[in-house]
């Protein structure tokens, strides 16, 4: 395993299109539910323990070599919002393109051929981690961390929040990210024997509802 490869994949500047998405933060800011660093932290913590742990476990399972088609179905079942399914596939397609250019690998080629419109992003992330020579825990960390760093960065722009405060939020979430990554890998390790039903399925009702509303806005700063 190369620790530097992990830094490349986890880098917010990795050209996979994530910067255009707020992870639901734009809708939460508009609704007045995220107004400062404290509410951003609560938002990120809630997201991390719901969609975050689901995504991290999918990424970890894909990194272990679980069939991406099975995992993509499991992701669909855990993403009731059609707006969020569309976003996950668009981000998956962009990540596939970036990862194939960065770490050419037959499994990435096969994934691109099987899902021309994109597989769910966490599934692609896991396969990309394999292609980069990384492991399941690396994939889970990448997924869990980007699930909170995306909203934190977006809120800096949306609220003109002090970037130092946003980074402080991420630092305070470190223990939760550790926990989520460990849980995700534990669940992913059981998929081979027990099927994808063992993957976490925790949901955040307001994120789903707000994602549907946000998709209908005529003007918005972020794509989701």
């Amino acid at each position: 395993m190369s620790r530097a490869a992990l830094l490349v994949l986890a880098d917010g500047r990795f050209p996979a299109g994530g910067h255009a998405h707020s992870g639901g933060a734009e809708a939460a800011v508009r609704a007045g539910r995220v107004t400062d660093a404290a509410t951003l932290e609560a938002f990120c913590r809630g997201r991390l323990h719901t969609g975050g742990v689901v995504a991290a476990s999918l990424a970890a399972a894909a990194a272990l070599g679980t069939d991406p088609v099975e995992l993509d179905r499991a992701a669909d079942a855990r993403t009731p919002s059609p707006a969020l399914r569309t976003v996950a596939r668009r981000l998956g397609r962009q990540l596939t393109r970036a990862a194939r250019a960065t770490w050419p690998h037959p499994e990435l080629d096969a994934l691109a051929a099987r899902f021309p419109k994109g597989a769910h992003q966490p599934v692609v992330l896991g396969v990309a981690a394999r292609a980069a020579g990384l492991g399941a825990l690396d994939a889970a960390y990448c997924s869990a961390y980007e699930g909170v760093s995306g909203p934190a960065t977006a809120v800096v722009r949306l609220l003109s929040l002090d970037p130092f405060d946003a980074t402080g939020v991420l630092a305070r979430l470190a223990a939760d990210v550790d926990l989520v990554a460990r849980d995700a890998v534990e669940a992913a390790g059981r998929v081979r024997a027990e099927g994808t039903g063992v993957l976490p399925a925790r949901s955040a009702p307001l994120l789903e509802i707000a994602a549907e509303a946000h998709a209908g806005w005529p003007v918005r700063l972020f794509a989701s």
Partner: peptide, 10 residues
């Protein structure tokens, strides 16, 4: 798990 009643939860 943390955040269940926060702005992303309920």
């Amino acid at each position: 798990p943390g955040g269940w009643d926060g702005p992303a939860g309920l």
